[in-house]
Design a protein around this nucleic acid. Structure first.
Length: 488
DNA sequence: AGCCCTTTGAAGTTC
DNA sequence: GAACTTCAAAGGGCT
């Protein structure tokens, strides 16, 4: 896996990937930060894949500005600085829309003001925050983080209280920075001192002492919905009220704000695995004891509230009308019933294998964040074109900016591993090939239909007279243009 | 209704 | 181990 090997030992991203794209002549053109989406769009429209992409768009100034200076400092320091810089820029204009729109922002119910006149959190907000985020230390939030929370109270509907004063004992400043600057992701993993397999174990025992729930969680009635809570598994602390499959099913605090189009998709940090943050030893033992198989049992795809887990897509089961049998003779009915029984058994088997989606990679996270912005800028809705723009912008990002997403993706994967131990991407291969026709990407050869354009990228970069510089795939008429891009 | 397109990255499979 | 394939998201377009 491509990883950034930072000076501090953090694997913040795909080192080789980023290096490779830096080496690309094509990618040398760093798209100016203020490059308008219209220009992107124009590029896309004029040529979805502009073979002669050159450095026309890049200015050396912007290039120098974007290039990280020589790594005389540790990557950790650089990361912090760049993230701060990125945050400033985000505040400044380029990223005015709430970054990480799907990330675990906290919406304080009391939108008017969660603060008391003395500046402290109101009891309502405090209770809400603690309920939503047991890790959240609302009582001991630093001045800085409180200020961050205040600052986040924008008049926009978002009230996306991103850098809400999370303070995790033992967290390094980097972690806090990452948390605050990486757009409010409640990443509680310490990058250095936490075992890779326990990235999200609690940092504050205070909030996770089993058997010592806060008063607002002791009742059997959901304080928010008023719906009585079903009895919980005795092995699970009231602090870990969700079944493994239900982890992450807490409705997004900003669900109203972040439309997910009702798609039951794995949301990753969008649903911040709220309870995944609380996966602890008892949870793990519960998982392993209850689920000897690697898959989460189907009933766990439902929260106690019945809300489907966003990470698990359960195949739809069409409800057949029982009245359809009217008018049939008995043997037909018996046969029908038999068939129905068999069908239902198959469906049950299907349901027993809920579709756990892959964790999002860095680029996917970036796309999710930036898509809306690009769409808004260029009034373009066709995803294919949008994705091309996003792909370009992705390459235009600095290493540090990309590292942010690589780090997020890494945490997503770790979280995913914890939530679904034993899950394999292979499972989804089979899953998708069962129900529907195998999704087969068209083997679009670069030279398909036009041999002259066969190995496009490397030919464009080096020219026909320097084929010795072409990457292997291009020399062999690489089947995927992307391989020329990435592996050149 | 369901696949295609389009992007990058991760992980799986194949040779 | 390189090369190839699939799947993650998204939504308009197409069959």
């Amino acid at each position: 896996m491509p990883q950034l090997n930072g000076g501090g030992g953090d694997d913040l991203g795909a080192n080789d990937e980023m290096i490779s794209f830096k080496d690309e002549g094509e990618q040398e053109e760093k798209i100016s930060e203020n490059l308008s989406a219209e220009r992107d769009l124009a590029d896309v429209k004029s040529s979805l894949v502009n073979e002669s992409e050159t450095n026309q768009n890049s200015s050396s100034d912007s290039e120098a500005e974007r290039r990280p200076p020589p790594r005389s400092e540790t990557f950790r320091d650089k990361t912090r600085e760049s993230l701060e810089e990125a945050a400033k820029r985000q505040d400044g204009g380029l990223f005015k829309s709430p970054p990480y729109p799907g990330y675990p922002f906290i919406m304080i119910p009391d939108l008017t003001s969660p603060y008391l006149p003395n500046g402290s959190l109101s009891p309502t907000a405090r209770t809400y925050l603690q309920m939503k985020w047991p890790l959240l230390d609302v009582n001991h939030g630093s001045l800085q983080s409180r200020q961050a929370l205040k600052d986040a109270r924008s008049p926009s509907p978002a009230h996306i209280v991103g850098p809400f004063c999370l303070e995790f004992p033992g967290q390094s400043d980097l972690s806090l920075h990452q948390f605050q600057l990486s757009n409010k992701v409640p990443v509680v993993q310490h990058p250095h001192h936490v075992h890779p397999l326990t990235p999200l174990i609690t940092y504050s025992n205070e909030h996770f002492t089993p058997g010592n729930p806060p008063p607002h969680l002791q009742g059997d009635v959901d304080p928010k919905t008023g719906i009585p809570r079903p009895p919980q598994h005795p092995d699970i602390s009231p602090y870990y009220p969700l079944s493994p499959g239900a982890v992450g099913q807490i409705p997004h605090p900003l669900g109203w704000l972040v439309p997910q189009q009702g798609q039951p998709v794995y949301q990753g940090f969008r649903h911040p695995y709220p309870t995944a943050l609380t996966v602890n030893a008892s949870m793990q033992s519960f998982l392993s004891s209850r689920f000897p198989h690697h898959m989460v049992p189907p009933h766990h795809s439902l929260h106690q509230t019945g809300i489907p887990h966003p990470a698990i897509v359960t195949p739809n089961v069409k409800q057949e009308s029982s009245h359809s049998d009217i008018g049939l003779n008995s043997s037909t009915i018996l046969y029908t019933l038999h068939r129905k029984h068999q069908d239902s058994k198959k469906e049950d088997e299907k349901k027993k294998q809920p579709h756990i989606k892959k964790p999002l990679n860095a680029f996917m996270l970036y796309m999710k964040e930036m898509r809306a912005k690009v769409v808004a800028e260029c009034t373009l809705k066709e995803s294919a074109a949008i994705n091309q723009i996003l792909g370009r912008r992705w390459h235009a990002l600095t290493r540090e900016e990309q590292a942010k997403y690589y780090e997020l993706a890494r945490k997503e994967r770790q979280l995913h591993m914890q939530l679904y131990p034993g899950w394999s991407a292979r499972d989804n291969y089979a899953a998708n090939q069962q129900g529907k026709k195998k999704k087969r990407k068209r083997d679009k050869q670069p030279g398909e239909g036009n041999d002259l354009s066969a190995p496009k990228k490397c030919r464009a970069r080096f020219g026909l007279d320097q084929q010795n510089n072409w990457c292997g795939p291009c020399r062999r008429k690489c089947p995927k243009e992307v391989s020329c891009l990435v592996r050149a």
